[in-house]
Design a protein around this nucleic acid. Structure first.
Lengths: 210, 210
DNA sequence: TCGTATCTTTACCAATTGGTAAAAAGCCAG
DNA sequence: CTGGCTTTTTACCAATTGGTAAAGATACGA
């Protein structure tokens, strides 16, 4: 029965050591290339090079280029939303928002490729992530916006539109990863994440202090 | 002398009516496609389709794909920096900054493709725009940052890092164009540029009021 | 209206791309 | 140590890509 020779469509038995190692290598290499060149700008040969495998060998582990991309996006979605999930509804509102901001800056610093991968995907209209936005992102954002609206109604935060607040936090924090090329030119190469922490702390403190 | 058959390398004489019309069509079509798919994701056939011309005809007007892209970037640079150039050093500081913010939001609304074209280019490391950043953007930003620093020293604005302030204005305003796909999902399709104006006005007023 | 310069089309390439078939090699349990 | 699985390599495609050559059509001033 040579119908399913590759692990892609195999039974859900534990993948072998080699499989885990090589899939990891492929995803790591793919993240590097996709985040820099976007989906269409990336070739399987580049991924294969980066992973130290041959192109057909890549296609032994993944059904095709698109599956690699979608796998990356799926695997990353959770980590990406974690900082927002970590907002504690029982905490002190201003603290919770500020801590969210600082976590997001740290993600920009620690995971710039992941940030650019998402940025690329959204920029191009989220063609391979539409469902994820609806089912993963939207409910979480709705909840968070409602939570913030509640805090504002209780007088524990200054009055702002919660959704635009969230947009502004995403924009300002991810900017440092996504537009790094520009930031580098203007800061003359100095890593200025400390400056970002300080500035954004001031920004959201002044905006939100009740 | 069939050595320079095309207008690309022709003498600087006034281009013909047909040339002006077709170059404009090509650039318009190219802006549409480049801004959506990035440089490598765009094909000459797509541009040719959008422009209503054949591929070889495109290459009669431009030496190649890269020249089209660079031409777009160059042509747009001025318009892109105009809002910052329009900041009046003699004006009331808070007013000047707020008007800059509102102009940038309007550019996001009016020219989303241009915004995404730049975003794509920067995301990928600005490979075709490095010099422009150094010679066009950097001096202007340095001047503006110095101007803001002066205003702060005079006590006419609250203390903030001018460069990070500029980053945050870019990030928050361009977000609405660059990440439109995400914004659309979360606002359920409603055009919310009015909300953006109101939110960012509040944000920067509270941040900067002396 | 005629001839020249401008513009457009047709017919191609060579290189690259995502992907496949199938043989060869490696691994490992019995 | 061997037979059957997994993994990798080799040798290919067909489609797409950016780009070219050169013939053909068109505009337009004299």
């Amino acid at each position: 029965m040579p119908a399913s020779p590759d692990p892609v469509s195999a039974a859900p038995s534990r993948p072998s050591r080699i499989q885990r190692r090589n899939r990891k290598r492929i995803l790591e290499a793919a993240l590097e290339v996709f985040s820099q060149h976007g989906y269409r700008g990336t070739t399987l040969d580049q991924i294969a090079d980066g992973a130290g495998l041959s192109k057909p060998n890549i296609l032994y582990y993944f059904a095709g280029k698109e599956e690699i991309h979608v796998t990356l996006l799926n695997d990353l979605m959770d980590a990406w939303l974690a900082p927002m999930r970590a907002i504690d509804p029982g905490g002190e509102p201003l603290d919770e928002i500020l801590r969210y901001v600082h976590r997001k800056i740290e993600m920009s610093r620690a995971l710039p490729r992941e940030s650019r991968l998402f940025a690329n995907e959204i920029l191009q209209g989220a063609p391979r992530m539409g469902p994820h936005l609806e089912t993963g992102l939207k409910p979480l954002v709705d909840d968070t916006a409602a939570l913030i609206a509640g805090w504002i109604a209780e007088g524990r935060l200054a009055r702002v539109d919660p959704l635009h607040l969230i947009f502004s936090i995403w924009a300002t924090t991810q900017h440092y990863a996504d537009f790094d090329a520009q930031v580098q030119v203007l800061t003359e190469g100095g890593d200025d994440y400390d400056g970002a922490h300080a500035f954004l702390d001031t920004l959201y403190r002044r905006l939100l202090a009740p």
